[in-house]
């Protein structure tokens, strides 16, 4: 079939540094995913229905979701019958191909980097449920754009969780960038408003607004986000220019519900997947794209400040399915 070859070729054009990070970051995920595929292929001489059932299982175990897993496996099955393919490892290649297609179908290539407005500060609102890594991701994003020569302002909009403001303040001082903080339990909208004013005053290029973690079924808290947005717009009319939803890679099918709910109240323009350096396969990436068409923009591959990478599907699939093999020979 030569699809892996295709993926390898695509990858070979890309920077080695990024490739290495993906390969290293996804090392643990891969050991689970691709070795499962390989063990499966080794167990079967010829492909039959049981084989496809097991493929489905591997996908579900990667949090791809039942429906999408079925779709991908069905498409693989169909094509294999059409072309008379019955060799297990060829089928596996076909499967990866279908995973690729299922994501790529959902829209054009996306620009991962933040799109800066031509005039005035660009505003990025960061939202998500509790404990996904919003504050850490903000620090990573801030560093990324400071390194690109942008003037970044942080706004500590999480006035609810104990220690949240302190956490962002520590990051601001480590990154040597300005920060706007409110009083404890202050209305987050008022902090956001102060942030916008300050951003205009100091002529910041990028204002990143942190928000408190909220579970998507809490109506009040979701309404609070809409209010923050309105208040931000009082100062900067077309803001927020970007809204990133942060999702933990270990999240299961609830990730889709999260994306849906946050999309409804904040115009999510991109997803950042955190904690991809664990053993999770991040199948939720495919599930979210499949159901909602929201692109993943960045992924977090480690705890260090520069362990945030642009999301690249080729790299992701390569890192997940192949990366290690090459190193082994």
């Amino acid at each position: 079939m030569g699809l892996f070859k295709f993926l390898k070729e695509k990858i070979s054009g890309k920077s080695n540094a990024q490739k290495d990070k993906y390969v290293a970051g996804l090392d643990k995920s891969r050991r689970n995913f691709s070795s499962k595929l390989k063990i499966l292929a080794a167990r079967y001489q010829k492909v039959d229905d049981d084989y496809f059932d097991e493929l489905e299982q591997i996908l579900i175990e990667a949090d791809v979701g039942v429906n999408l897993a079925l779709e991908i496996v069905d498409a693989t099955k169909k094509e294999s019958r059409l072309n008379g393919i019955s060799n297990p490892s060829d089928i596996n290649e076909l499967l990866v191909d279908k995973m690729f297609v299922s994501y790529a179908q959902q829209g054009d290539d996306i620009q991962n980097e933040i799109v800066f407005s031509e005039e005035g500060p660009t505003v990025l609102l960061v939202v998500g449920v509790n404990g996904v890594g919003k504050t850490t991701t903000i620090a990573k994003l801030a560093k990324r754009y400071i390194d690109q020569g942008k003037k970044v302002l942080l706004v500590a909009g999480d006035t609810f969780r104990a220690g949240a403001t302190e956490q962002l303040t520590i990051w601001a001082s480590r990154l040597n960038c300005e920060i706007v903080v409110g009083k404890e339990f202050a209305d987050p909208s008022s902090v956001a408003y102060d942030g916008m004013k300050k951003g205009k005053e100091i002529d910041a290029d990028l204002i990143i607004v942190d928000t408190a973690g909220r579970l998507q079924n809490k109506v009040n808290l979701m309404a609070e986000l809409s209010k923050m947005k309105r208040v931000i717009q009082k100062e900067i009319a077309d803001a927020p220019h970007e809204t990133f939803l942060i999702i933990d890679a270990t999240t299961g099918q609830n990730g889709v519900i999260q994306a849906k709910a946050f999309k409804e109240c904040t115009d999510v323009s991109g997803v950042v997947i955190t904690k991809m350096d664990g053993t999770s396969k991040g199948g939720i990436i495919l599930a979210i794209r499949d159901e909602l068409g929201i692109p993943v923009r960045f992924i977090g591959l480690g705890e260090k400040m520069d362990d945030l990478e642009e999301f690249d599907l080729d790299q992701y699939l390569y890192g997940l399915c192949l990366g290690g093999d090459e190193n082994n020979g």
Binding site: N32, G131, D248, T250, T251, G252, Q253, N254, G255, G278
Partner: peptide, 12 residues
């Protein structure tokens, strides 16, 4: 354990 965890939670 987060109630939102996916399939990998068992490995963890």
């Amino acid at each position: 354990v987060d109630a939102m965890s996916g399939q990998d939670a068992v490995n963890v």
